[in-house]
Amino acid sequence: MKLILKVWRQKNSSDKGRIETYPMENVSEHMSFLEMMDVLNEQLISQGTDPIAFDHDCREGICGMCSMYINGEAHGPDRGITTCQLHMRKFNDGDTIYVEPFRAKGFPVIKDLTVDRSAFDRIQHAGGFISVNTSGNTQDANAIPIPKDDADKAFDAATCIGCGACVASCKNASAMLFVSAKVSQFSLLPQGKVEAKRRVLNMVEQMDKEGFGNCTNTGACEVECPKGISLENIARMNREYLKASVASE
């Protein structure tokens, strides 16, 4: 099929950037979106132009690196997938497709479609962990009884791959879905209870410092999240935060 791509090009973080138009022919509908981008880059290289920089790694929906905003949606029009899992059969012959980087003050553009998501790492460092004694007499995690319901919910929260689609989709560039998934994953389990208060206070503080917006509960994040992380997690984080604020000295 024939496509017209309108891709955001930006040399570096200080460049203003602009949309460039690239017509493409003979795009196979079996290609993934990233494969289509590879083909486009081959074309650009053979024409002597700078290829389009974009993030990717696993290409099977588990690393969360591929971060494109396609036709006004994070990871494109399909649901429950990342960009590497998006296929060209979702588009029609003759379509014009806009490809932009994820946009948020907390995710500055590095080059073209690549953005710096290290803000998520710093939020994780602020509290997304548990401390266990590994001196040799560590308790076997399987020996700790956990209600099935809690284990399931914690597991669901833990499937978050930190892709940032929630931030990209949110009209407020809020990171609350991501942070709430990380908070929930631990707070639901006995191992996470010890540091629960400190964790939620510190992670939210870091989230605010990174310049992400507030939540208006539009639910856009939940719809666009490739892992189906639920808004229930944000409610849980708000509860945890309230509890921790009231109880902290």
Partner: peptide
Amino acid sequence: IRNKSARDVRYVKNNGSANST
């Protein structure tokens, strides 16, 4: 104001109605 400033560069194409009311 805080929410607007959290996205300093706007999208050229944004399809808000695809995921929210």
